[in-house]
Amino acid sequence: MSELNKNIAEYALRIGDTSLILGQRLAEWCGHGPILEEDIALTNISLDLIGQSRAFLTYAGEKEGNGRSEDDLAFFREARTFKNRLMAEQPNGDYAQTMIRQLFLSVYQYYFYTELMKSKDETFAALAEKSLKEVTYHVRHSSEWTIRFGDGTEESHVRTLEAVDTL
């Protein structure tokens, strides 16, 4: 494996891991959301993220050149070898913590994918372009909730501050 391919594989794995872990966390909410509409909305975000991770993990496997599939990478690695942003794996907590985590990571991903679109690697650029559309909506969704929590009730305000402190 060339040094370049090795580096690309490593980089793709990092991106894919963050999406995978965050998507997995959000999936834990499925069936337990605060209202049906929100249950559906959060699942949409989770599905976007799992889709992103599949694409990046597949690419990582290709570049690695050892015939590992998205599933080999997702299911047959030790927990310690995951390279996700630590923020993504923080527990769901209450809905404020889930939303603030989402806001932070979605904004991060927004700027990240915006830059990745300029990559000389065509696959990265294409995946970034597709992901950016999804993430733009995630930013909108989590921002709207953050505004409502911050300026909603006393309780929602306190919970949101705590979430920001925790994260």
């Binding site: 209202i35 049906l36 509409e37 929100e38 559906i40 909305a41 949409n44 909108r140 969704h141 709207e144 409502r148």
Partner: peptide, 20 residues
Amino acid sequence: SVHAPDKEMALQNARDVYSR
């Protein structure tokens, strides 16, 4: 139909429920 507290959320909920 969807339930929503205001128009911005109504638009988002409509998108999430009816354009999957």
